[in-house]
C-alpha cells in the first residue's frame, strides 16, 4: 500500500546527456533532413509500437466531440466525466485510492482554434495513468521535462507538430495534485464519423498534446510481424 513517507520523493533520473543519446538524435534528425523518412512517420511509429490501442481517454474525447453537454462536463469535472468511459479515478488501479502518484483530480484541457495545450511534469513525471496508461519513455526524460516549459514550440516541432504563430501554446505543468489530458480539436474530414471511428484517431500523443489527430492516423493498426529468416521446424 502507500508508503506515504516517500509520497513525493522524485524518482531518480540520469541527469546528463550521453554521447550515445546525442548520436541517436543526430542520426535520426539527419535521416529526416535527407528525406529518408519524415518526422511525422517517426513519431507515429514510435507511438504505435508503444501502445496497444485507443485509451479510455480517446473515447472520452470522441464522446465530447459528438456531445456538447458531455464536453462541458469533461471541462468542469474530468473525474465524473471519466466514469462514462469506465474509469473511476477513485478506485482504479494501480493504487486503488488515488495516491501516491495517481491523485484523483483530472482536468481536461480543451483546445480551441486559437489555443493548443501540451502537458508536462517538470518536477518528476506525473501522468494521468488511470485513463492513459503508463507514460512513454520520452515523457520522463529531463530532456522533455526541462525543455518543454521553456521552448515548447521547438520541442513540439521535434515531434513534427508546427503550431501556427497566431495560435497560443499553453504548457500545463503538472506540479501538484491535478493530472491533465488534452482534448484536441476535431479534425477536418471526420464529418459523420461514429464514436468508434473518432476514438481511433485520438492517439496517446494527441492526449499529451504533442500531436494532433488526423483522419487515417490511428494507434491500433495491426502490428506487422517480421517473418523468421530461418524458421525452426516443429
Amino acid at each position: 500500500m502507500s508508503d506515504h513517507d516517500h509520497d513525493h520523493k522524485p524518482a531518480p533520473v540520469v541527469d546528463e546527456v550521453s554521447d550515445f543519446e546525442i548520436l541517436e538524435v543526430a542520426v535520426r534528425e539527419l535521416a529526416i533532413e535527407k528525406g529518408l523518412f519524415t518526422m511525422d512517420d517517426h513519431r507515429t511509429w514510435t507511438e504505435y509500437i508503444h501502445t496497444l490501442g485507443p485509451t479510455p481517454a480517446a473515447r472520452l474525447v470522441a464522446k465530447a466531440w459528438l456531445d456538447p453537454e458531455y464536453k462541458k462536463l469533461c471541462i468542469e469535472d474530468g473525474v465524473t466525466a471519466s466514469r462514462e468511459v469506465d474509469i473511476d479515478w477513485v478506485t482504479s488501479p494501480p493504487t486503488q485510492f488515488g495516491t501516491p502518484s495517481d491523485y484523483c483530480n483530472l482536468r481536461v484541457l480543451a483546445d480551441t482554434p486559437t489555443l493548443k495545450h501540451v502537458v508536462v511534469c517538470t518536477l518528476c513525471s506525473c501522468y494521468p495513468r488511470p485513463i492513459l496508461g503508463q507514460s512513454p519513455e520520452w515523457y520522463r526524460t529531463p530532456n522533455y521535462r526541462r525543455r518543454l516549459v521553456r521552448w515548447p514550440r521547438q520541442v513540439l516541432s521535434e515531434f513534427g507538430l508546427q503550431v501556427p504563430e497566431d495560435v497560443e501554446v499553453r504548457v500545463a505543468d503538472s506540479n501538484q495534485k491535478t493530472r491533465y489530458i488534452v482534448m484536441p480539436n476535431r479534425p477536418e474530414g471526420t464529418d459523420g464519423w461514429t464514436e468508434d471511428q473518432l476514438t481511433e484517431i485520438v492517439t496517446r500523443d494527441c492526449l499529451i498534446g504533442v500531436a494532433v489527430p488526423k483522419p487515417g492516423v490511428t494507434s491500433n493498426v495491426k502490428l506487422p510481424v517480421m517473418k523468421a529468416a530461418n524458421p525452426v521446424p516443429h
Binding site: 506515504h4 509520497d7 477513485v90 485510492f97 491523485y103 484523483c104 483530480n105 495534485k177
Partner: peptide, 13 residues
C-alpha cells in the same frame, strides 16, 4: 493512515 483516509474517496477529494 493516509490510504485509509483516501480509500473510496480519493485524494484531494
Amino acid at each position: 493512515h493516509h490510504a485509509k483516509m483516501a480509500t473510496g474517496v480519493g485524494d484531494p477529494q
